[in-house]
Design a protein around this nucleic acid. Structure first.
Lengths: 237, 237
DNA sequence: CCAAAAGTGTTGCTTGTACACCCATGT
DNA sequence: ACATGGGTGTACAAGCAACACTTTTGG
């Protein structure tokens, strides 16, 4: 058959080229105690023992990059249904001293209160504030810079929070999250008005009385409406 | 030596994992006759003969993804120093019927008037308006959607044009380019004011008299200033 | 002369920002 | 009572969009 021949010809073309290890590395963001944090893993062996790394793993034959990233996230945090987005590819031939590995990076956003703490502790992982990161292996520092930039951009357009905050949260908590993401302050009144004007949040009847004397209403995200909103939240510099 | 052992241990870890073909595919944008165009290549053999594809190629051992993309661009357009930016990775295991290939995509912007037309013609390549694309192989349609979205985003922040227009251009030509990118019209007066307020352009003394009776001044981009500007050009919807 | 593009000016609306001010309450 | 954060209102400035108007010149 002609098609068969063509395919075997193709296969020959492919065979002239080298194959590569392909990995995924995930910048796993969480929000806790007023700080934006990253989940990092200690490297227990040389080279680069004592340094920290993003959670990552190799891509297998039967899975896409996204599927590989999800598999790894389930293994390490116990969480399915995590927000996940590609953020780039790192490919300098010598970026990993062990072998030539091409790494595709992802940003994951998770609610710290939801993950499996036991599982995380078993792996020796630790939540690090993004403002005080430890030394990192290879090019993971650049990966994180990349991920942070993407997170800022996303948060500037989309109102993140659903993925990082608990079900119910106060507007002050949301403001604090945005301040952590953008490393700047926002005017309380203006932030509140802006966010409410987007019409994405719903006030619950409960109040948080632990963080202020007067007590602040809890809000939650409305059920996702058909039309995907993409409104600007934070003006770019 | 301990380190040697550690490395060979590492190597063992790597060896448990499969390797993959890795390719790059480039969405090469140009601007000509008032239209935004893409450089595509016809596929001359089955499967998918008669369909068109982005220019791409396999990543070799000694090069990064960016280097591979640049190598391919030089081979096909004859142009060095092209604007190039990563736009994503496509990795469904069966996306290429010939073999499992992971493809990282790039956006390239070139001045159509500068490229090597002979070289392009040899390859059978053709410039297609982005509004009237032919059928494409595999997932190249999605790659282009992705690339277009990135181009819009970039153009909304950065004032593209340096990479797509000739050295000297009129403000109307720049406006037409933006209209082609965003598929909408802009008010001539407002566009002019907005763009000039950015202080990125310099008026030359020459005039273009071929496209209007009165004649319009040619402008060019100022030499890149130290501070990298990142000002919003087009408001997001 | 007049059509058509180049270029400038005016106006009103929307949005962001700074900040004043009242409210509720735990200490 | 008062300090603290919650919540609302106001006033000014900046940016944008719509559109009127003037200039220039080839046909």
């Amino acid at each position: 058959m002609q098609e068969e021949n063509a395919i075997s010809l193709l296969t020959k073309i492919y065979k002239q080229h080298p194959k590569h290890y392909v990995a995924v590395d995930c910048s796993i963001f969480g929000y806790e105690e007023g700080e934006l944090k990253l989940l990092l893993y200690p490297r227990g062996f040389e080279p680069a023992r004592g340094k920290w790394s993003l959670m990552g793993g190799f891509v297998q034959n039967n899975e896409s990059l996204e599927e590989a990233a999800r598999r790894i996230l389930v293994q390490t945090t116990g969480l399915h249904d995590i927000f996940l987005e590609q953020s780039g590819a790192f490919s300098k031939p010598d970026r990993d001293p062990g072998a030539r590995v091409i790494s595709v990076t992802f940003v994951a956003l998770i609610r710290i209160d939801m993950h499996d703490k036991e599982l995380v502790r078993e792996n020796g992982a630790h939540w690090w504030p993004v403002t005080k990161l430890p030394p990192l292996i290879f090019d993971h520092e650049a990966m994180i810079q990349n991920a942070l930039a993407l997170l800022q951009q996303k948060a500037g357009i989309n109102l993140v929070g659903k993925e990082l905050l608990p079900e119910l949260f106060t507007l002050m908590q949301l403001k604090n999250l945005y301040e952590a993401i953008f490393q700047r302050t926002f005017d309380p009144g203006n932030f509140r008005k802006k966010v409410l004007s987007l019409d994405l949040l719903e006030r619950s009847n409960e109040k948080n009385t632990s963080e202020s004397k007067k007590g602040a209403f809890y809000y939650k995200f409305k059920e996702a409406e058909s039309g995907v909103r993409s409104e600007r939240i934070v003006k770019f510099p």
